[in-house]
């Protein structure tokens, strides 16, 4: 806090300074509040827009029943009379698809990226280490549409040729068509997409573990793997949580790439089908929004799509707060205590 002791003739000038200081504070504060207002506006607007869809369906909105794509088409084709709008929707396949792709990618990615980060920090030959780090940062910044392009042009045909036999197709032909773009490809590409971000964050944190801790352990005769696993990885737990939260947010919101490779069919893959489960198409919420972008101007479909957006918004807000809370909970073990 600035406190002034203006001397003699400088009093007037100092007063002027104080006034301009207050003006600056007001201006900066106003801009910051503009951001806040926009966000609150976003939440309010999206929910008001989405309300008719929720209120027409009640809790059944989240349930199962019928073919979700058919329901979306019916909503799109509903009569122009506002009283006759069709809202019926059972969004479970989409929610389930979102949970499967996001959860699968984050789980696989988390294990993989912790191991890979340990590798980069501790076990990689020095030259490889120096090469890997910038490449990881580069891949973290690659636009998702590029991953989607590789997915749809390379991985999907590969999966179609390698795993989808005639018998497999026939085994589910009355339920769903298999054409390669599937849950497995979606999870795979999503994992490849979020792993660089997690690795970059975890590597940074592992590097920041105080040397004394690891060297002390090593001096007691603990081997290198155990030093990393029991000292460093434990010390950076809050950062790992933060990385996972960030990755989940990115996976949850990924729309374009998933609409390219996941098969874009509102279908809930069925675990009873065994391996075929992984090869069945699905479609997460975010991809549904992109796929139905042309229908936004039809009022009832628009409201339904805003309902999807509202669910995504709630999940991401919840995620930010969960991440913040976890970081607080873990603060006592943190070397990054102040980072949250």
């Amino acid at each position: 806090m600035a406190s002034y002791a203006p001397a003699g003739g400088a009093l007037a000038q100092a007063r002027k300074g104080v006034r301009s200081d207050q003006r600056a504070e007001l201006l900066l504060g106003a801009l910051a509040c503009l951001v806040l207002a926009l966000i609150l506006g976003m939440i309010v607007f999206v929910f008001t827009k989405a309300w008719p869809s929720f209120s027409a369906n009640g809790l059944a909105w989240f349930g199962t029943g019928g073919d979700v794509d058919q329901q979306l088409t019916d909503i799109f084709n509903s009569p122009a009379n506002p009283k006759a709008y069709v809202y019926e929707l059972r969004a479970w396949p989409l929610l389930y698809g979102t949970a499967l792709t996001t959860g699968g990618a984050v789980l696989v990615g988390l294990v993989f990226s912790v191991l890979a980060a340990i590798f980069i920090v501790e076990f990689a030959p020095e030259r490889l280490q120096r090469l890997l780090e910038p490449v990881v940062l580069l891949l973290a910044a690659v636009p998702s549409v590029v991953y989607g392009l590789i997915g749809i042009l390379v991985v999907v045909p590969l999966v179609r040729d390698a795993f989808i036999s005639e018998e497999r197709k026939e085994s589910v032909q009355f339920v769903v068509q298999l054409d390669g773009s599937s849950l497995a490809v979606a999870v795979l590409i999503l994992t490849v997409m979020i792993v660089p971000i997690m690795i970059a964050i975890i590597v940074d944190a592992l590097r920041a573990v105080p040397r004394q801790w690891t060297e002390g352990a090593a001096a007691l005769g603990v081997n290198r793997w155990r030093v990393m696993w029991t000292i460093s990885v434990r010390a950076v737990r809050p950062v790992i949580v933060a990385a996972a939260v960030l990755a989940t947010a990115r996976a949850l919101g990924e729309a374009i790439m998933l609409s390219m490779v996941s098969g874009s069919k509102g279908f809930a893959p069925n675990p009873i089908d065994g391996i075929t489960f992984l090869l069945e198409p699905t479609r997460p919420l975010a991809a549904t929004i992109v796929d139905n972008r042309e229908g936004l101007s039809a009022v009832p479909l628009g409201q339904t799509i805003y309902a999807f957006a509202a669910v995504l918004l709630i999940s991401s807000v919840f995620l930010s707060f969960a991440g913040w809370y976890m970081k607080r909970r873990l603060r006592h073990v943190a070397i990054y205590g102040g980072a949250g």
């Binding site: 976003m42 919101g253 729309a255 975010a286 929004i289 957006a309 991401s316 807000v317 995620l319």
Partner: peptide, 11 residues
């Protein structure tokens, strides 16, 4: 920072 860009788009 956590909001999906699709949601921002339709907002």
């Amino acid at each position: 920072a956590g909001t999906p860009s699709v949601v921002l788009a339709i907002f």
